[in-house]
């Protein structure tokens, strides 16, 4: 109950802050008479959003789709590769070095090349999104898998757990918090990757929209696209955080509920 109140009041505080910033922005733009093509007032951005609703929605969907596909591919490949790296000394030596080297290449710089190789379109954007979000997932999986206490592995051995059991019962759950940390970082990077890729080679999506709006001095539209993009990034991030709370329930960031404490302290007989 107390927690619910606290959470509600946090939400309220955040909402009020955002509204205050928007109002201040509106007032400043009007008072200082800043031209629309430099900084539009929030009201103009909002109007533009409504006017171009269906069009915006289409571009939003395209970008969302690219982000999700690119991100999912990096999850589906990144987590198993991270696990394999921990289990295979050979892979560890070869692939880890390769990964780090590949990480040194700024992937955004590869975007024009991919365009040449794969052509104009979604496949190029998805590939770049995947490449950018892949690395943190692999690294966090490796770190998580390694974070198991040596005694825990001794315990597994003493219980005569098979390799598979040791993985499924001990190592994977221990690694999950770290893996989710990687997923959260990767999700924000995936958004960046998709937008940059769209800048370089796309005729649709929010990244394309921002560029073309800028070129035509439709600054309110650019702002609208940026706002939608931010909201999308937030939504994806919080969706993963929500999953994390469900899956890694034993590491929930909030403290013990008071009832649990009471239950735990009763019956300690000294």
């Amino acid at each position: 109950m107390k927690q619910l109140v606290r959470r509600l009041s946090t939400t309220l505080l955040v909402t009020i802050t955002i509204i205050a910033v928007l109002v201040l922005w509106e007032v400043l733009v009007r008072l200082l008479d800043i031209p629309m093509y430099l900084v539009p007032p929030p009201s103009a951005v909002f109007k533009e959003t409504l006017r171009l609703g269906p069009e915006l929605l289409r571009h939003t969907w395209v970008t969302f789709y690219e982000i999700v596909i690119g991100f999912l591919i990096s999850v589906v490949l990144g987590v198993p590769i991270g696990i394999l790296i921990v289990y295979s000394p050979w892979l560890e030596q070869v692939s880890y070095v390769l990964l780090v080297i590949s990480q040194a290449v700024p992937k955004v710089a590869l975007a024009p090349l991919f365009l040449v190789w794969l052509g104009f379109g979604m496949q190029t954007i998805v590939l770049l999104t995947f490449l950018i979000s892949f690395f943190p997932i692999v690294v966090n999986t490796v770190v998580g898998m390694r974070s198991i206490a040596p005694e825990m592995l001794l315990l597994a051995k003493a219980m005569k757990a098979t390799q598979l059991q040791t993985f499924a019962i001990f190592r994977l759950p221990v690694a999950l918090p770290s893996i989710f940390g990687g997923l959260k970082v990767a999700s924000t990077l995936a958004v960046v990757g998709a937008i940059v890729a769209e800048f370089v080679g796309s005729q649709e999506g929010l990244g394309y929209l921002i560029l073309s709006a800028n070129a035509n001095f439709q600054t309110p539209l650019a702002f609208a696209a940026i706002a939608i993009l931010s909201l999308m990034g937030l939504a994806i991030f919080y969706f993963i955080a929500f999953l994390e709370n469900r899956v890694v329930f034993w590491q929930r960031s909030n403290e013990l509920e008071p009832e649990a404490w009471q239950r735990a302290s009763v019956g300690v007989d000294l």
């Binding site: 034993w250 013990l256 649990a260 404490w261 239950r263 735990a264 302290s265 009763v266 019956g267 300690v268 007989d269």
Partner: peptide
Amino acid sequence: VNLADFAHCYPRELSGGM
């Protein structure tokens, strides 16, 4: 070991000795 009431608790709900 006098922990009959805690069978369905999670470890984080217990003290070090428990």
